[in-house]
Design a protein around this nucleic acid. Sequence first.
RNA 1: GCGGAGAUGCCGGAGUGGUCAAACGGGACAGGCUUAGGACCUGUUAGCUUAGUGCUUACCUAGGUUCGAAUCCUAGUCUCCGCACCA
Length: 827
Amino acid sequence: MAEHGHNFKSIEQKWQKKWENSKIFQTKEKKGVRKFYSLEMYPYPSGTGLHMGHAFNYTVGDIFARMKRMQGFNVLYPMGYDSFGLPAENAAIKNGVHPKKYTEKAIANFIKQQKNLGLSYDWSRVIFTHKPEYYKWNQYFFLKFLEKGLAYRKKAPVNWCPKCQTVLANEQVHQGKCWRHQDTEVETKNLEQWFIRTTKYSDELLDKIHSLQWPSRIKIMQENWIGRSEGTEIFFEIKGEKWPIFTTRPDTIFGVTFMVVSSQHLRLMELVKPDQKDKVESFLKKIRATKQEDLENLEKEGVFTGSYAVNPANNEKIPVYVGNFVLADYGSGMVMCVPAHDQRDFEFAKKYNISIKLVIKPKDKVLNEKNLDEAYTGPGILINSGSFNGLFSEQAKEKITKALESKKQGRRRTQYKFRDWLVSRQRYWGTPIPVIYCSSCGIVPVPEKELPVKLPEKVKFGKGNPLETEEKFVNVKCPKCGNRARRETDTMDTFFDSSWYYLRYCDSKNSKKPFDIKKVSYWMPVDQYIGGAEHATMHLIYARFFTKALRDLGFFGNLKIDEPFLRLFNQGMLHGSDGFVMSKSRGNDVLPEEVSEKYGIDTARLFLVSMASTDKDIRWSDEGVEGSMRFISKVMDFFSRKKFGKTDARTENKLNKTIKEVTSYIENFQYNLAVIAIRELFNYLENGTDRKTTETFLKLLSPFCPHISEELWHRLGNKTFLSLQKWPVVDERKINPEFEKEEKTVDGLINDVNNVFNIVRSKGKDVSKLYIYTLPNEKNTYTNNLNEIKKRTGLGVFVYSVSDKGKHDPENKSKKVKPGKPGIYLE
RNA sequence: GCGGAGAUGCCGGAGUGGUCAAACGGGACAGGCUUAGGACCUGUUAGCUUAGUGCUUACCUAGGUUCGAAUCCUAGUCUCCGCACCA
């Protein structure tokens, strides 16, 4: 059945076409009109297309943008595609299709599907990051970064995913695994790679988090990710050379009895004495053989290197070990060890019989070096610490640091977990890094006027990065000396592309510049950003960094733009009816097309946001969607027989309350509550309403169900677009709490009547009439609602005031009257 | 281990000191409409009790604060998420 004769599909197509043809969602800068930049994280166009989960994401944003637009904001609401990336390349290798062809087909499909959802994007601004017109600017920015030292090349221990066949940034390693392959251990390799100096902005990235209206958990994640800690850098002399270590406990320096260097330390072998070499090497071999996940639960182990260090505090000679529990890339990859006051050091010392020396005395207990069960890590008073004895540990931290500083043996230092961003990738489908290697000139940037360095299309896929074997691409002349040189074959991490795409939307077709400063100054920053929490420590950090870097490179002139996204909202995940996250590969995906065919896409949109608060995970249910369907059908039926009348004060009250609620619910992404309020309002419309009230209802409904709302608006005889109408504004004077009181009274009455009705009927008496006895001043409450009482009880209703003479009251029920509670009699 | 979120009736899920046996939706049940089914309309959906009353038990568990707790505090259990030997 075409669901009650409502042909949703043709209504949808009709309005999507009209919206598109009349370009009503296209935006330009308008002086004097308040702008609103609403943005959803752009998708990676996967070949499998959209399912309901994606539809949910975009619907959340669309509802918001639609309301803002109706509220009179000049809304920028664009869409684009993060179209470089590994999956396309892998699919290409697997199926023999070129990544470009594969990607562009996927994009075409995405666009078609997104249009079918009725999303109010300004399609004229669409961007595709795999197009030279876009990635040219990636290269441009990279060169600017290079010029300012924000991009650099360095050999370092890096993460390598054997499945992706490329290195990964720190942010892309999740629990030791590749972010794309949860079954694949990331390996550590020492490679020369390109980095972006994100750590230059560690402090600003950390400190400005507080100014953002973001979900607190995202803020906390970023804080933890940056992981600032204050401490002291101390130099230990080994073989006549000073080696730095970082510690947050300089107060325990007199308790240092050994040192441990990371097994992955780049200069480890310099510390290994020849007679210990074999032992160390077999230890390293063992570590390499253990899996990352086992490594984490591993007992602390190590091997003596044969070297000794000198403790600068007391000139004691202490052994240097290589160990499996020291991180190579935090601090200096080497630690001083105080077994008495650090649990890890304690375990290590016990295992290898290294001496334990107490230097902190707790306030409330006495410790003994000989029979310590665990390290004491709390504060206390210094002992065995030379001239620092008697100080409290907090004080001692300061004093010892100062003493070391004065002897140039240490200094105050802030340490971060945050790493520079490794951006080079050994893969084809990405932005070529615009650099040339010349044997005599070294690293030479490609001159700006030669940009873009185009990604060659005809390449051979097979082993490794196809660019490496592409002679025409690789072999170039050095721009400086003109001699034969080699072009960089690594491409950029696609997070580079997504770090500035929100800026490009402001001026997406500019061929002279990445963006025009005036346009950016009008639109930026993004007022509302919407996307998943999975980007907390990836895209959302990179984009913040990029904005700051571009600011300092002068790209924003004098504008004060330093944070890209003012407000962030994380929508929940859509789960399939089996309870698992909806995905094609799991086979629990529901396709928008199917739902649209059966119920109309407005039904799907409505249902998606009705179930729960949009920030929570929700579960698709086929029964649930029928409920939304029923509501929409009722609305359609109502309008098809609509005759305007007068709106009574009660409905006015409800209307204005609803306007107020819906507006603030949408503003706060509590769409589920907004839908409830709209549904409740609808129940009042049956009482008879004038044109304005009816139209207001449609306006409130329209962000959720834009197609049918637009259609019904049109059927009311309007020639304009509902999507561009003014959002209703509450008239507080029409809100009167008395009406709610009245409603409750009526509900109470009906409750009572049904109660009595059941009792009476269970006694075998048949009743059909309801007599109500009220206080004289309350009579109106019931006569006003006569129809409703009749409808809900199914009885004939008679209302008397207790003072009425000659009323029918055989059992004298009128004596039961209380304020707000009438007497009732059934017969 | 550290950090964050959460646990509500048959289910999903609102509610964050009284107006709460707890919105709204779904499901189930009953009645109406209908030749019948569907759809639609009305009601019920913790238990007992009653001509509309009263009582008991209820918002993870156990305590506490309060005249009063789903809501505040303390302890615990469980679930989910992020980071994970960060010195």
